[in-house]
Each structure stands twice: as C-alpha cells, then as structure tokens.
Design a protein around this nucleic acid. Structure first.
Lengths: 147, 147
DNA sequence: GGTTTATAGTTGCAAATGCAACAAAAATGA
DNA sequence: TCATTTTTGTTGCATTTGCAACTATAAACC
C-alpha cells in the first residue's frame, strides 16, 4: 500500500488536500449552524443565482455549478423553495423544467450568510497563508478541479 | 458579497480548494463503486489500523485520524465489523471501550482497494501536477489542515 | 411525419449522517 | 472514600444523500 518512495510525496499531498478541505468546511458549517443559518450548499446555490443573468438558472446549470447530482439539486431546491428563498418559474422554451429564481428573501439570506461565512474564511484560511502562498494555490488548484 | 477586490483572490482560492477536493474524491468513489468495493472511508480506517501499533486502535483515535465524529465512527465500525474486516476486542485497561483490530480479510480488502485507489490518484491527481507544484502543495496545505 | 434516442427533472427506497440524549466507566478532587 | 466531572462509546430520531426507476419533453435520425 503506497509503499514506493516515489509515490510517498504524492499521496501525502493528496491526503492533505482533502484534510485541508474538510477541516476548513467543518469550521464554516459549524459557524453557520451556530448562527442558526442553513448549510453551505444553500449559499452555493444562492450566490450562483445572484451572479446569473436575470438571477435565474435551470437546475441542470446549478447541478453543474455546485457539483451536486440532479436529484440532489431537485430536493435541495424543494427545501429552499419551501423556505421561500427561491422560486420555480415555468420555462416557456423547455417545458420539461423550470427556471429557479432568486427571491428577495433569498437575497437577504445570502447577505446574512455571507456575514458569517466571509469572516470565517478570513479566520481559518487567508490568515494562515502568505500572499505568495495564496497566489500559488490559485495557480495550482484549478488544474485539479475539472471533471 | 465578497465584492472587495482585496478578498477576490482569497475567495477564489478558497472555492478552488473545495472544488478540487470534491472533484478528485468523486473520481475515486466512482471507481471504487464501479469495482464493487466499499467507500473511501473504509480505506481510511483500514490504513490507519494497518499503520497502527499491533494493528489496533481505539475508536477515539480513529475518530481523530479520519475526521469523523465519534458516533460516525461507531456506526462505520458496526458495518465494517459485520463485514468481517475489523473486530472489536475488549480492552482490559479501559472497560468503556474496545480495541478495533484489523483482520486478515481486512488487510486483503485494504490491498484490493489500493489497487483501484492508487492508480486513481495517479490518473486524476499526480499526472496533472509538476514535481514543483506537488512540493508546493505539500508545503502549503498542512497549514490549513489543523483543527 | 414518425420513430428513436437523449436530456431534464421527480420520486421511492435504502443507506448514511447529524444531533441530542443517554449509559458506563474513568479521572478528579474534596 | 465518595461525589462530581470527563471521557468513551451507543442509540433514537430526523434529515440528507445516493441509486435506480420513472415521466415528460426535446432533439436527432430516417
């Protein structure tokens, strides 16, 4: 099992990548929960919609953007719609699906979450890295991020 | 929301960290599933036991090593024990808990999983990075990995 | 046009995860 | 010694996730 010296470093870096990600996410999720706010994937959806043309997207677009399988998105949107932060609006040009639209309460929630999320990134992430390290990550990580 | 130019880079790196991790893990999980093997966290437990003194550990040690809450470990071990790859062996010096021991079938499974897992790391991870980038990650990521 | 194939989304069911409450043993400390 | 607090682990319940099967519409192909 990963005994060859050649691979040692590789595997170590691999493991640290996932450990770093998990540790960081745990912090944020804990902070959100403690603030009585929904989990991070709500934020992911809200910010995508906020950035989108007309503040609306199809589910397959969201699915791609937030890396969630279609059935995962379907149910996430169910919950978010029930909470009033998004809205399903029928799509004229493709009657299989609908547009998911950001509502005003949704935008409010987005801001409220960011007020917890943002500082959390500072505290557990940026404050631990130098400017150069940050740039370095920015150069390297995208290579690992395409599916 | 994350509009200040100062933070732009930071947030981008943050997002890429998690995207990279997710994308990479998806590949491995898919490969394992396709090979009819259990999920990655089984491997994490097995390899920890394999490395451990006497090939056994307490649950709280595992919990710490694989970043799973204690109740998560408890049930994961339930499943793994039912499958025969680990064993709960009573602990004389502390009768609250038990030692979790690696069995021979467990070691076999470990090897079988590594034959899928290892090549997967090469294909989706190391092959996309230069030696220098790998070293760079190894220097930076640990800073983000302590709880 | 009409048939086939691909795409978008939903749903049922099983499995996994999170949270909180709990039990039991160990450590602490008066 | 005996009461209190901490640590270790389990369990019940609700929520979430994953997988597979399904519906409905759109696109592609003759």
């Amino acid at each position: 099992m990963e005994k060859q010296a050649k691979n040692r470093d590789t595997v170590r870096a691999w493991a640290q990548l996932h450990r770093a990600s998990r540790v960081q996410l745990e912090h944020v999720e804990a902070a959100l929960r403690q603030a009585g706010l929904p989990p991070l994937n709500w934020y992911d959806v809200l910010i995508e919609l906020y950035w989108a043309e007309d503040a609306r997207m199809r589910q397959y677009e969201l699915s791609d953007a937030v890396l969630l399988p279609k059935h995962g998105i379907s149910r996430l949107i169910d919950r978010m719609e029930a909470d009033g932060v998004v809205l399903r609006e029928s799509c004229e040009t493709d009657r299989r699906g609908a547009y998911i639209c950001l509502t005003q309460p949704g935008e409010d929630l987005l801001r409220k979450m960011w007020r917890v999320y943002g500082p959390c990134i500072d505290a557990t992430f940026s404050s631990k890295l130098t400017r150069a390290e940050l740039r370095s990550l920015q150069k390297i990580l995208p290579k690992l991020a395409d599916r």
